[in-house]
Amino acid sequence: MYKLNKLTSDSLTSFTSLLKTKWNEIHNETDIFRYKIDDLKERIIDGKYFLQLNPDRRSKRRTPEEMTSICQPFDENKFNFNKVSSKEILFSLEGKDGDIHTVLVNVSPISRYHSLLCPSVNKCLPQVVTPDSLKLVLQIMFQIEDGGVRIGFNSICGFASVNHLHYHLFVEEKTLQIENVTWQHFKGEMYTLDENSTVPAFCFKIQKDSCNQTLQQVWKVLEYFLKKSIAHNILFTKRGLGERDDVVYLIVWPRRNTSGVKQLSAFNVAVLELSGWFPIYDEEDFNNVEAKDLEAELTKWKRDDFKTICEDIKSI
């Protein structure tokens, strides 16, 4: 069990180094993964959309859970991360009040080092964002020096696959399209991509020395989404709006709700796709898809009431 505040005290046991070392050991020396991640084909479209071909993920991954409500209760009888093999555990972090934050390999990875952060895994929380889990993710992000690390969250009805609180950990050195956009100031440390964008979004510029204050603003917005049953996807990145080591950018997209079982078609629009990173499962799609096709798919999930959402958020 590691203490989070000691992970950066020794470069040999930094969060990213520990993640990569343990992930490679499990990937190379065991049969835990449902398929191997080696030399995925990649393609950049129009200088901004990043495609990766990963056909095994469609055919070999675990069947996603059926979910219909954004605050659907946890069900211990369904698959959850307390049921995984101990061999899937990369490491665990010790939290307050007996909390255990577990980092697992994703056995059906999108890319190399794709892992899952399960905050307070022992508490059996549903896939609903919480203030404590946001604080945990930000604590990790502020300690990570590698700008290629991103952490993502998909809400229920926002293409989450498992109803047990978890965030996705990714390592990718390429800059994502969302990290290059021009944001418009909204209020405080909050910025927007307005309704003229392919999919409107909010961005919070979170500085280390004022993290708690900005996080209160973040939580008010997410709490509003939960009360209004607005599905959402969240990305944490250190790239964008002028990169600084003491700043983390939290991007959140309110989006149209999905329901039922997640289907793996050419691509599902979750946090990565909204960021400009498209895992593709069919080689013909990978070779032939164009930017207009990607943007048409993204637009399907664009809400019609973004102006109303902005007005509501200004008043809270």
Rank of each mutant, 00 (worst) to 15 (best):
H168K: 01
V247S: 06
F225W: 11
I26D: 03
T182F: 07
A291V: 15
H101R: 11
K205I: 03
F33H: 10
V248K: 03
K3S: 12
V199D: 05
T102N: 03
A231F: 12
P200M: 06
G260F: 05
A291S: 15
I110G: 01
V103W: 02
H114I: 02
G240T: 02
V221D: 03
R239N: 12
S17M: 08
N180A: 05
Q207M: 12
Y49Q: 06
L298D: 00
H27T: 06
W23P: 05
E65I: 09
V248D: 01
T63L: 12
Q72Y: 04
L40N: 14
N28K: 13
L18V: 03
Q184K: 15
R58Y: 05
P254L: 07
P64S: 06
V105I: 15
H166Y: 13
W23N: 10
T8M: 00
K83G: 07
N287C: 13
D146L: 10
E145G: 11
D293V: 09
T102W: 00
L165H: 02
F159I: 00
L90S: 02
I70F: 06
L18C: 13
W301Q: 05
V269I: 11
I309E: 10
P73A: 12
S120I: 07
L12F: 11
L134V: 09
D246N: 12
E189V: 00
S14C: 07
K41N: 12
L235P: 10
K220I: 14
K314V: 11
T68Y: 13
L104G: 08
C310F: 05
E311F: 08
I140H: 06
F142Q: 01
K22A: 06
Y49R: 08
N82L: 11
G148F: 07
T8P: 00
C118H: 08
E283L: 12
K36C: 05
S197E: 14
V181W: 08
I144N: 03
I110F: 02
R303L: 11
P200C: 08
I234G: 03
G240Q: 02
P200N: 09
K238Q: 07
E297M: 06
N163Y: 05
G276P: 04
G152M: 06
L294Q: 11
K22M: 04
D312E: 11
F91P: 14
L19K: 04
Q139G: 10
D245Y: 03
K292Y: 07
D194C: 03
I32N: 09
I100D: 00
G95N: 02
G147T: 09
I156G: 09
I110H: 01
D97L: 01
I26M: 03
R57Y: 07
W253I: 05
F186A: 04
D146I: 07
E179W: 11
S69T: 13
L53I: 06
R255I: 15
V105R: 05
Q139W: 06
N54T: 13
E145P: 00
F153H: 10
S14H: 04
E29D: 10
T16Y: 01
R57H: 07
K78E: 15
N287A: 14
I37K: 00
L4V: 09
F225Y: 15
D97M: 08
C157E: 10
V289I: 15
L298Q: 02
V84C: 04
K262M: 11
L40K: 11
E172V: 02
